[in-house]
C-alpha cells in the first residue's frame, strides 16, 4: 500500500532532532509492548510481516499522530482480534472472558534467550536467480492494496543489481497469508538523479533491497 508509512522523499517533516543520552524506553509501557509483541511472535500467533501490515493499515491520521510504540500496540490489538486470540469485549473489560485459542509455543523464562534470537528468512529457492551483480534492471510500476517492500520513490526506476542476498520469504505473500513464496533478494542501486530528477545531489546513490518480482531487465 502507498500508506503514510512509505515516507521516502516526502517533504515537510522538518529537521531530524536527536535526543542526547536517549534511554531505550521512554516509559515502562513501551518495553511491555515490545516484549508482548516478541512473545506473541515466538508463540507463532502471527508473522512479523503481519505486524508491519497492521501498522500500515492504520488510518493515516492515526499513523502520523501516535508514537512508535503506540503503533506497535494498536497493530498488536488488531492482529489479536483479527486472528481470534482476543475479543473486543475482552479488550474493553481488561480481562480474559473467553476460551484461549491454542498456540504451539510459549515464551517462558527458560527460553527467553532463544526466543529473542532473530529468525532466519532464508528459504529454499524454487528457480535459479534471474539477475546477477552488474545487471541493469527496471523496477515495477505497482500500487498494490496489500503489503509491499517496493517503496513508492523507487517504482518504475532504472538501477543496477549490486548484491544478491539469497532467497528469502516474500513479505508481500506472507503478509497476505499466502505462504512464504520464496524469492531472490537483491540490493539494487540507483543514481540520485534517476530517482529525484536533474536537481538531485549528483553525489547521491540510493539502494533498496528488492525481491525478484519487483524487477525486470532494463
Amino acid at each position: 500500500m502507498s500508506s503514510p508509512h512509505d515516507m521516502g522523499g516526502m517533504d515537510g517533516f522538518g529537521k531530524v532532532e536527536a535526543e542526547p543520552n536517549e534511554p531505550p524506553f521512554h516509559a515502562s509501557w513501551e518495553g511491555r509492548v515490545l516484549a508482548m509483541v516478541r512473545a506473541m511472535g515466538y508463540a507463532g500467533a502471527w508473522h512479523i510481516d503481519h505486524s508491519r501490515f497492521a501498522q500500515e493499515t492504520l488510518p493515516a491520521h492515526v499513523y502520523h499522530s501516535v508514537s512508535y510504540y503506540q503503533r506497535w500496540q494498536l497493530a498488536m490489538e488488531k492482529n489479536l482480534v483479527a486472528r481470534g486470540y482476543v475479543t473486543p469485549d475482552e479488550l474493553a473489560a481488561g480481562h480474559a472472558l473467553h476460551q484461549t485459542k491454542p498456540l504451539n509455543h510459549k515464551l517462558t523464562l527458560d527460553v527467553v534467550r532463544a526466543g529473542m534470537a532473530r529468525s532466519s528468512f532464508f528459504r529454499q529457492h524454487q528457480a535459479p536467480a534471474r539477475f546477477k551483480p552488474g545487471d541493469r534492471v527496471r523496477t515495477a510500476n505497482i500500487n498494490p492494496q496489500g503489503h509491499t517492500r517496493l517503496p513508492r520513490y523507487a517504482r518504475d526506476k532504472q538501477g543496477v543489481v549490486e548484491l544478491i542476498h539469497g532467497c528469502h520469504a516474500y513479505p508481500d505473500s506472507v503478509a497476505a497469508d499466502k505462504g512464504d513464496d520464496p524469492q531472490w533478494l537483491y540490493t539494487v542501486v540507483f543514481d540520485g538523479r534517476e530517482i529525484w530528477g536533474p536537481d538531485a545531489d549528483p553525489t547521491l546513490k540510493i539502494s533498496i533491497d528488492a525481491f525478484e518480482p519487483y524487477l525486470e531487465p532494463a
Binding site: A39, Q73, A96, T100, K106
Partner: peptide, 12 residues
Amino acid sequence: LETILTEKGYVD
C-alpha cells in the same frame, strides 16, 4: 492487554 494475555496463558 498484558492482563488479558497473561490470563489467557499466551505470555509469561
